[in-house]
Design a protein around this nucleic acid. Structure first.
Lengths: 254, 254
DNA sequence: TAAATAGTGTCTGTAAGACAGTATAAA
DNA sequence: TTTATACTGTCTTACAGACACTATTTA
């Protein structure tokens, strides 16, 4: 057994490329959640150079036997202190950032990931300092994007927001930002927070309804009529929802 | 001057992380072009183990001072022998593949890119062996996807096709697969080849028209009426085109 | 009852899909 | 003239956006 394995290794070794540069591989995380009608991102204040004091995305290096997806999930737990075992979280790859000078210290290629946390729309998940010293804190995305950030993280955050904004048009990914059972208003709030706009409640309900599963249960709100509780389906939204300001009228104004 | 630079380097060195694994960073290319009504991909036959004789995507390692986008462009020239100076080509990042065992020889993380070449719909760009021995050849995508490929390249090719298929719904990216000036029929052929379906010519013209620029010139075809020549604009297609088989009717059939 | 929210009905305009009909060229 | 292609017109159906209206709860 061991002999075969050794032979196999030797064999592959013989065919391995022998001249290639190596790089440090990292993940950066765009962690998003909705509260108070605004989309928030978990960010850390850098405690050392370069960009000391600047805002940065949480992240870290990829382990020798990890995929980037696994590293993203691990770093999410380590850097935010979130108990992911109890919390539904959606993680997907965003893009890879590889400018040789993006980190002034050395060459770091970073695979950015988007992580969506479920909230009830009122309370953000508590963040605590994990294994690293710097604790993450929530910042409103649309405000943060008007300031500067460390490294190329402002670009990554913008790309993450754009990805989410676009994907919400033709999928039910927004349901990853509310509890498993949610009301139409909770879901609409996610759209409004992400797109930074207002949507007509009645029409939103009608367009979204066919893509959701009605649980038959009702929510008990503080006031107003009780709202139906839905769960998401994987049904693609065809034709997509239209983001105000991107339609024909907007083009005509140009 | 040199003193300052040295001091800066020492300073950054002091703050550099010191414990991280390094990986070999590569690019893989999904090179697409349309001819004879079918979408084709440039693929190489592997000349050595592992996966000897198998079909693989062209690709190679990223240089020490290159971004992945630059490496993709360079490898595209080297592996296909295409004269990119004379040929418009659209390159965009697809996704990063990082399974630790995706290459049995060693750890290679690959950033896949999508490259779209302009054709007149009849003749595929000639491929020649570049610096590497193995020459690339064109293969029909929808057929190749039913066979097996080396490494995880079948997955990458499928992801590339899905990306293009989706993006064509809401953008004029399909125009990257035809000459700068093109007829409505040429563009429609790109959609039909990619989506592997047929589209009604009249309706296609009406829906696409607002997103194209009419040059005023006409094509001289072998037969039939002369067709208007268009150039693309960057106008997003809102609401998007609908791919047959993904609409409401298709969902109702489930 | 008043206030607040949930959800439905209705109207209008736009556009998609189907397809017939017309125009323009080459053989 | 035949054939092939390019384009336009028309009809029907569907649905988005706007918004009024009803229903259901708490204070």
């Amino acid at each position: 057994m061991s002999r075969d394995w050794d032979a196999e290794q030797d064999f592959l070794q013989a065919y391995a490329p022998n001249d290639y540069p190596s790089v440090a591989l990292a993940v950066d995380l765009v962690v998003l959640a909705v509260a108070e009608g605004a989309l928030h991102s978990a960010l850390v204040h850098r405690g050392m150079h370069p960009f000391m004091g600047g805002l940065a995305l949480p992240g870290g290096f990829v382990g020798p036997r990890e995929s980037t997806g696994q590293a993203a999930y691990r770093e999410l737990a380590e850097e935010t202190g979130l108990d992911l075992g109890r919390m539904p979280v959606h993680v997907e790859q965003l893009a890879t950032y590889s400018d040789p000078d993006r980190d002034p210290r050395m060459r770091v290629v970073s695979v950015a990931h988007l992580a969506l946390l479920a909230t009830d729309g009122r309370i953000l998940p508590a963040l605590s300092a994990g294994s690293d010293a710097a604790a993450a804190a929530w910042h409103p995305v649309h405000q943060v994007l008007e300031s500067t950030m460390a490294f190329d993280h402002a670009i990554i955050l913008r790309d993450g927001l754009d990805r989410l904004s676009g994907k919400m048009e033709y999928s039910t990914v927004a349901a990853q930002l509310v509890p498993e059972e949610f009301t139409m208003t909770q879901l609409r709030t996610v759209y409004e927070a992400t797109w930074n706009t207002r949507l007509a409640a009645g029409n939103f309900t009608r367009k979204m309804m066919p893509h959701l599963q009605d649980t038959g249960r009702k929510s008990r709100a503080a006031t107003g009529a009780p709202a139906a509780l839905f769960t998401a389906t994987r049904s693609p939204i065809h034709p997509p929802l239209t983001r105000p300001g991107t339609g024909v009228e907007a083009r005509a104004r140009e």
